[in-house]
Design a protein around this nucleic acid. Sequence first.
DNA 1: GCTTGCGTTCGAGCGCGCTCGAAGTCCTAG
DNA 2: CTAGGACTTCGAGCGCGCTCGAACGCAAGC
Lengths: 163, 163
Amino acid sequence: MATEHLMTRALETLGADGPLSVEAIHRLTDLAGVPESMTIAEAADLLDTSPHALRYYERAGLVEVARDTNGHRLYDAGAVRRLVFLTRMRLSGMPIRDLQHYIALVDAGECTVHERLDMLLEHRDIIRRQIRELTLSLTAVEYKIATYGGATGPDVQDLDAGA
Amino acid sequence: MATEHLMTRALETLGADGPLSVEAIHRLTDLAGVPESMTIAEAADLLDTSPHALRYYERAGLVEVARDTNGHRLYDAGAVRRLVFLTRMRLSGMPIRDLQHYIALVDAGECTVHERLDMLLEHRDIIRRQIRELTLSLTAVEYKIATYGGATGPDVQDLDAGA
DNA sequence: GCTTGCGTTCGAGCGCGCTCGAAGTCCTAG
DNA sequence: CTAGGACTTCGAGCGCGCTCGAACGCAAGC
């Protein structure tokens, strides 16, 4: 998927450097090379989700999508950009409800920037905690793999049953 | 002991920050200093879950738990160790169904080690992918925080609506 | 004209993982 | 003797995030 590719390159660019990387991401998240507007199927494809889910997001008030003369949805760059953000937040576990709140703040204008920032800071912490938890799980699984995959020692039985 | 070494390295990898990591690793490692057997409330507390959830796991066939003379559950070291593993797998997104399968393999004996190993390898990859996805989300959120929290430049408006 | 295919709306259904509550048992403290 | 509290079993309920299907519209191709 295109977005992932873009972000992956952004990540690679990141490395250890600070503020420069921000600009790099900015550049890379511009959906260059993507059509002016797309059908729901194309958008779903790009976002690695389903047309059903996109309609669901719209029903939930997360994004407004224009229509063509047949009443078919037309996803323009703005809608797609918002959906890229939304799906990224969903992937990191932000509930629909919170996204609705966030979007409501966006729609409410500049004076809500503070609250939005608070939400982002809180979600950043949540993501970091998730990563820590997953790293622990990864360690546990790798440990178990080591006991299974290595020489079949006496440990295996001990750990089989439980740990 | 190998376990301590691995966990120590895990701690270092994680930056040894916060009570959360420490506590989690404590849960991950061994149950030294933990009573010989515990009530469901104590076990739930230790595992950071609810008695209801522990009964649910038992009903699902994931663990067998002894009873005292009153029919109350007694979680011994083996049960707790298994539950530590199970909750760790749950935290990293392994479905109950897969855990049931894994436990069935464990109960089936040594000849299933290979299949268990396969499951663990697959789950390891799943965890790694999750971590990658979360890292991308983290980057995206930090980028947005930077545009909001830094000097309020012209970018803010552009990105507000969508990206 | 008719089929195929992609879209629409709407409401219902589903899978998952708990979560809860009712009704009962047992021990302990007052 | 009684009240409280922690536990038991059981089945039902819930919150979330889609997911599906029915009934329909429109436009192109044979």
